[in-house]
Simulated scan of single mutants.
Amino acid sequence: MERNLTHIALFAALIAVLGLVPKIDLAAGVPITAQSLGIMLCGTVLGARRGALAVLLFLALVAAGLPLLSGGRGGLGVFAGPSVGYLVGFPVAAFVTGWLMERTTLSTGLAAGAASVIGGIGVLYVFGIGGMALMLGVTPTEAAFLGMAFLPGDIVKAVLAGMVTQSLARMRPASLLSRA
């Protein structure tokens, strides 16, 4: 139990640290950040349940007002902006990524990359595009077009998540809780 809590807190902190990477603002008001890499790693390393809990802890800290999102944003106001769909989708994306990681028999790196693409990109985009459409007052097709600006960077993040997870599996196999 204590080990689980430590891992959950550590990965919530990892997502926060990835928010220190300077954001790039898009016209839609949703920034390009490194934090989605943290969401992917929560799933690939911690697994479905622990990964989602780490993200929920992070979001609770953001809601409490800590400036942990990229650009030093925090508080309840961020849940009323165009990025709300992505924020709501973070724990679901981590859960799906972890769930896929726990159930696939592919090699660790390939499994982590594929799970990150499906959960960390596909699932997250469903929520993010829906949130953008709702908050910006545009059609889902227009929001999807706006959301495609994130795709190249997110593919790079999915590849990185696969590489990091594979490296972790080689160095410390017992620390890869998604495969335990």
Rank of each mutant, 00 (worst) to 15 (best):
M1L: 13
N4Y: 15
N4H: 14
H7I: 13
L10Y: 08
A13Q: 09
A13K: 02
I15N: 05
G19T: 03
L20T: 08
V21I: 05
P22D: 07
A28S: 13
G29P: 01
A34L: 07
A34P: 02
Q35I: 00
G43I: 09
T44N: 00
A48M: 12
A54I: 08
A60E: 11
A63Q: 09
G65Q: 03
P67H: 02
S70D: 00
S70C: 00
S70K: 06
G71L: 06
G74L: 09
G74H: 06
G75D: 02
L76I: 01
V78L: 14
V78D: 10
G81D: 14
G81K: 15
S83M: 10
Y86G: 08
L87F: 05
V88Q: 11
P91D: 08
L100A: 05
E102W: 09
T104S: 04
T104K: 07
T105Q: 10
T105I: 14
T108N: 08
T108Q: 14
G109D: 03
L110D: 07
G113V: 11
A115E: 05
G120H: 06
V123C: 09
V123I: 15
L124G: 10
G128H: 03
A133P: 02
L136F: 01
V138N: 02
P140S: 06
P140Y: 00
P140T: 03
T141A: 06
E142I: 10
E142H: 04
M148T: 02
A149F: 04
A149H: 00
A149R: 02
L151I: 06
G153P: 02
D154V: 01
K157C: 06
A158K: 00
A158Q: 00
V159N: 04
L160K: 14
L160P: 08
A161K: 11
A169V: 14
A169R: 11
R170C: 12
M171K: 15
M171L: 15
S178A: 15
